[in-house]
């Protein structure tokens, strides 16, 4: 991947060091609301190393969701650069971004975002479908991922036949199945009761222990406390960045 970026000397000089999975450099995101321009992000820069467990915190309206969309390659910044796993992704086209999302990012959403009419297994298969994995291998890996989240016996259930916690575990399995560079969890416990929420956080902790990089977006302190590092966002800027453990 790195060799593709190397063609430009400017980009080369800013290339993140090995072991850095995310590097953002002066990220701006401006929404044009007719008369006024709203700056959702005003120059956000940070690095996240491989294997880190980071919480991005901030009150609503802080720009936290915008940042998450950029990190998740769902959107592109107005200005600034973003490297993900050694590749400059801030200037890619829609379809290239889709490819990056598929390969590098495992999403876990607050509202689970499972396909209601598909079985747990098929939901987990989806990322593999979009990178053209052959059916046999796809099934094997989706089943494996469901076993990792301890849902090996619920594979053929549809989301409405599963509890909230189980649904979120399906979503975690789906995030895992493509072996992404980062797992991006956006308020993963927001729709769960505290006991089930703790169960999901436990699962994320275990994934971190086995080597995954986890980025957690939340506004709850006790959830953020699971992470080893907290990046605080306020008014579109990083207002604190501290290691907890």
């Amino acid at each position: 991947m790195g060799s593709q970026v190397a063609s430009s000397p400017v980009q080369e000089s800013h290339r993140p060091a090995d072991g850095v999975i995310i590097r953002t450099e002066d990220l701006w995101k401006t929404y044009d609301m007719g008369e006024v321009a709203v700056h959702a992000l005003c120059g956000v820069s940070f690095e996240i190393a491989r294997g880190e467990y980071v919480a991005i915190m901030g009150p609503s309206g802080s720009g936290k969701s915008t940042l998450m969309n950029l990190i998740g390659c769902l959107d592109t910044p107005t200005s600034g650069r973003y490297w993900l796993n050694g590749r400059l992704v801030s200037e890619l086209t829609d379809d290239e971004l889709a490819h990056i999302r598929n390969k590098e990012i495992g999403f876990v959403f607050q509202t689970f975002n499972l396909l209601a009419r598909a079985t747990a297994l098929h939901n987990v298969e989806l990322p593999l479908i979009y990178n053209g994995t052959p059916a046999e291998e796809r099934l094997e890996r989706a089943k494996e991922a469901l076993r990792v989240v301890e849902l090996g016996d619920r594979m053929y259930h549809k989301p409405n036949e599963l509890s909230g916690g189980q649904r979120q575990r399906v979503a975690v399995a789906r995030a895992l199945v493509n072996n992404p560079s980062i797992i991006l969890a956006d308020e993963p416990t927001g729709n769960l009761d505290s006991a089930t929420g703790a169960e999901i956080m436990n699962l994320l902790d275990r994934l971190h222990q086995s080597g995954n990089t986890i980025v957690l977006v939340t506004h709850e302190f006790d959830i953020a406390a699971h992470a080893f590092r907290v990046i605080g966002i306020r008014d579109g800027k990083v207002d604190r960045d501290e290691r907890m453990k």
Binding site: A98, H99, F107, L126, P127, Y130
Partner: peptide
Amino acid sequence: IRKSLGAR
């Protein structure tokens, strides 16, 4: 959902 998972 499909797009977030990498559908082009």
